[in-house]
Design a protein around this nucleic acid. Sequence first.
DNA 1: ACCGTTATTGCATGGATTTGCGATAGTGGA
DNA 2: TCCACTATCGCAAATCCATGCAATAACGGT
Lengths: 142, 142
Amino acid sequence: MSGHESAVAHLRSEGYRMTPQRLSVLDIVAGRPGHIGADEVWNLAKEQHPYVDLATIYRTLQLLKRLGVVTEVVIGNKLHFELANHHDRHNHMVCSECDSVQTLSPAYLAEFSQRLQQEFGFTPDLDNITIGGLCSICQPQG
Amino acid sequence: MSGHESAVAHLRSEGYRMTPQRLSVLDIVAGRPGHIGADEVWNLAKEQHPYVDLATIYRTLQLLKRLGVVTEVVIGNKLHFELANHHDRHNHMVCSECDSVQTLSPAYLAEFSQRLQQEFGFTPDLDNITIGGLCSICQPQG
DNA sequence: ACCGTTATTGCATGGATTTGCGATAGTGGA
DNA sequence: TCCACTATCGCAAATCCATGCAATAACGGT
């Protein structure tokens, strides 16, 4: 329901074409509350279009990321994606020990981001920043 | 000369063994002022030990990273490494458009890091954080 | 409804990094 | 100095993601 008709319009207005494969990927990511791995997107997409190739999934996800329709989360050595909800932006903290994920308000990064912009003219890709580290449970020795 | 006898001792004290391959990797990374790609480490290492395998290079670099001896910089789709100089810590801003790299004082991340620690008990891996985004030259239209 | 242009796909291939496993070689102790 | 234990290595294969290319299919114009 909600989100992605606008995404379709966005694609069209930029000269991109709307294909069943892209619609599938969009539906799958939009239908998932949290983030989802590329391989999982592929498995679900195959239910609708048995011949979709994994490369198409990757290309579509990168395209949607470039357009700001989805955001990327690095978990372990894998990429996950989720629908970009502009009313509920958030970043992720991923534990390198147990791969657990916590969400983080972008407010925590706002000042940092502004300083990079002002002092270096560098625009960090805030939406797709994943913070790695150790969660409270996995801290060294007790 | 300077740095890495202590690293050798550190390895030993943790029960790791000191092998010629590991020494090579350490020497190579230490002998390089800036960061160096895994493949480049491999090429240089082969000059000393023609049979070293690339997998050994990767395993060694990951080990040295875990021990805090080297830090990792994500540039494009490749991993680079540099000797962790505790007197000159810095992070990196990498442009996703042109792959240019700028260094950044960790002071910019200090407050952010402290808040994650205090409010979530999450310890970000500050030394290995790479900030992706667009450099001043690659900004859209302008 | 048809056509032409060209964006997109599937397939095959390639690059970067990781992992499983049997063989090898550090290291501490006798 | 020699041994035993086991961390580490080299090799091969696997994983994840990206890319080149010819065939296909969207979509705007007719």
